[in-house]
Design a protein around this nucleic acid. Structure first.
Length: 293
DNA sequence: CTTTGCACCTGTTGGC
DNA sequence: TGCCAACAGGTGCAAA
């Protein structure tokens, strides 16, 4: 048994991974936050390894000097951003379309697309992998809420600020299709391409309908269904995470019961007619033409 | 101001 | 089998 295996066996360091979701919408980012939180809070950062700084924006050259010597105080999520707060500022992480974070023994060999390690004093590290490099890792001093990328974001869908009344007011005079409206992060955050389709199915609303044609009653229903599907997905994410701790496979969405996303041609779970696929703003949308009006 | 389409990247899939 | 086009879960930005 190698020294590393021995340490693992003795649980001196975590076996591995947390949250290798490959398609991060809000529930996946929330699950990631919960997954890494117990393994990074109050950990002192001893090194930062940037193997490839070419993410959506270049990883700042000063990032290591900002981080090293600091200890992470809190892990928060705002929209699809992870906020790792420390005394002198905040590390902002966005997973883009293909990013994931894992907790690993710091000496785990890096593989392709493992771009950044944040190394802790206990010889574990937080490792960012992101094949498409649409993600971001940025430093923010001061209030992260005032950061350019965060300040215009809409309310959290699971918070008090998002309900039917809010949605009704926000949709007035907006001609864009409701599905694209829901994916606008300045209206409400965290709803991505999958959950937009799913929430509209649950609410019985046609994704092509103009936002300002949605009634007050429908807005209430839609806000409720958005909360429902996100809560459900987070709960499933938690399950997935538990099941996968100690393994090294991607978790993905296979445990999630989706009604319409990716189900073109399949029978609608409610009425049996074929699920349709259309394009809206260069994104795929799935819906039931019978149930969603 | 709202809306639209492009761009950024790599990897996978399906059709020929 | 190989090749190539199409597509993939996000989002800032320029242009209309």
């Amino acid at each position: 048994m190698t020294a590393l295996q021995e340490r693992r066996a003795n649980f001196l360091i975590p076996l591995t991974i947390y949250a290798t979701f490959t398609m991060p919408e809000l529930p996946e980012v929330e699950t990631t936050a919960r997954g890494i939180r117990p393994h990074v809070v109050e950990k002192k950062i001893t090194a930062v390894i940037v193997r490839d700084a070419r993410l959506r924006w270049p990883v700042p050259k000063e990032l290591p000097q900002h981080l090293v010597g600091n200890a992470i105080e809190h892990v928060e999520r705002r929209a699809k951003y992870l906020l790792l707060r420390m005394p002198s500022g905040t590390l902002l992480i966005h997973l883009g379309m293909s990013g994931n974070l894992r907790i690993l023994p710091a000496d785990t060999p890096a593989q392709t697309h493992d771009h950044v390690d944040v190394v802790f004093a206990d010889h574990t590290c937080l490792r960012l992998r992101d094949p498409r490099r649409f993600g971001a890792m940025l430093w923010c001093d001061g209030d992260p809420g005032a950061h350019k990328l965060l300040r215009a974001l809409g309310p959290e869908p699971l918070g008090e600020g998002f309900d039917g009344d809010y949605l009704f007011r926000a949709t007035r005079k907006r001609k864009v299709a409701i599905k694209q409206f829901l994916m606008n992060q300045n209206i409400v955050v965290g709803v991505g391409n999958i959950y937009a389709s799913e929430a509209l199915f649950l609410a019985g609303i046609n994704p092509r309908r103009a936002a300002d044609k949605i009634t007050k009653v429908q807005c209430s229903r839609l806000a409720l269904e958005i909360k429902n599907i996100l809560h459900y997905a987070i709960a499933q994410g938690g399950t997935t995470l538990r099941d996968f701790v100690g393994s090294n496979g991607d978790t993905g969405y296979f445990q999630l019961k989706l009604n319409v996303y990716g189900k073109e041609g399949a029978p609608c779970p409610r009425c049996g007619s074929a699920i349709m696929q259309i394009r809206q703003g260069q994104r795929s949308t799935f819906y039931c033409g019978q149930c969603q009006k």
